[in-house]
């Protein structure tokens, strides 16, 4: 046997092994989806897909399984996290890539990465004992601190590393010539950042935000600890529409985690149905990130 054929033999084996590993994750996603769907079918069949999606009352004891309140809860808390987290993350990314001297980058970047490593239950605990009492100070009838605002702040910090890291990378990847050209034309540093670098890095920044969204939708335990978990359609507490964020809510993930250990029969199936809705939402969000990235690459 010559070394040449041995090498092709190794090449082939490695190729197969790598193919199998790649297919494994695809298979796992597929299996999880099929299993969740199968468990959810009795609920969809018995209660009706539309009735579940549009129902606002969730009282398993009475056979009512509407998940609209949870969809709204997940959506609003994610929106809140984006409103608070994106400016913060974008500011961090611009500072780290364009402004900060090397030694500051060396301190700040690892600490952002450290944020990503903190377990979510610790964020939840922090939210429960520090943020919730702070939010409670806002005067509004029915504001108990637990609710969308506290949850959004916790979530904003949790998605910060994802958004900041990818955005920083996107801004750094803008070709050097753009910067130099802009400065050579007499633009100030800020004009260069806001008019040239950010527009050029936009696709990367958008996909960073969308990936953060996906992470936010899936967060569970920290949300359970601070959001109040009441199954109500969030509504403004005062005349100010922003006070909707003081309302309590429940997320799709929280609904599953809070109730699964007790659920049997249709109730259990309805929780799997909640999982299917969440799965589809996250799939939509993630594939739109992929779409935006591809569109960005083509430009």
């Amino acid at each position: 046997m010559t070394s040449g054929t041995r090498r092709t033999g190794l090449e082939k084996t490695m190729k197969t092994i790598l193919l199998v590993s790649a297919l494994a994750s695809l298979l796992i996603v597929l299996l999880i989806f099929i299993f969740t769907m199968k468990e959810a079918m009795p609920a969809f069949r018995e209660l009706g897909v539309w009735k579940m999606l549009s129902g606002t009352t969730w009282r398993p004891g009475n056979g009512e399984f509407g998940i609209l309140a949870m969809i709204a809860g997940s959506g609003l808390v994610t929106l809140g996290a984006v409103l608070i987290g994106v400016p913060l993350a974008l500011g961090t990314a611009i500072f780290l890539s364009e402004i900060a001297p090397g030694w500051i980058v060396k301190i700040v970047r690892p600490s952002i990465e450290l944020l990503a490593g903190i377990p979510s239950v610790v964020y939840g605990l922090f939210g429960m004992v520090v943020l919730v009492p702070l939010v409670r100070e806002i005067p509004a009838p029915g504001n108990a601190g637990f609710g969308l605002l506290a949850a959004s702040i916790v979530l904003a910090v949790m998605v910060l590393p994802t958004i900041a890291n990818i955005s920083e990378f996107a801004i750094r990847s803008v070709p050097r010539g753009y910067r130099e050209g802009s400065l050579a034309l007499g633009a100030t540093k800020w004009e260069t950042i806001s008019r040239v670098l950010i527009p050029a890095a936009r696709p990367g920044i958008i996909s960073a935000v969308v990936l953060g969204l996906g992470r936010a939708l899936g967060e569970t335990i920290a949300m359970i600890m601070v959001i109040g978990n009441s199954v109500v359609l969030p509504a403004a507490l005062t005349g100010n529409p922003l006070s909707i964020f003081l309302s309590r809510a429940r997320t799709l993930t929280g609904n599953i985690a809070v109730e699964i250990s007790y659920a049997t029969g249709v109730h259990e199936s309805a929780l799997f149905a909640t999982g299917v809705v969440l799965f589809i939402l996250i799939m939509l969000v993630n594939s739109s990130a992929g779409f935006l990235l591809r569109r960005g690459a083509r430009r």
Binding site: R59, P133, G142, F146, A257, V258
Partner: peptide
């Protein structure tokens, strides 16, 4: 029925913390 506005917590321990730290709870 227990009011829908109730703060729900999934364990006795979490309920105790909530009551201890929330005024009027």
């Amino acid at each position: 029925l227990i009011t829908e506005m109730a703060i729900l917590q999934p364990s006795n321990g979490a309920i105790r913390t909530t009551v201890a730290t929330t005024p009027g709870c």
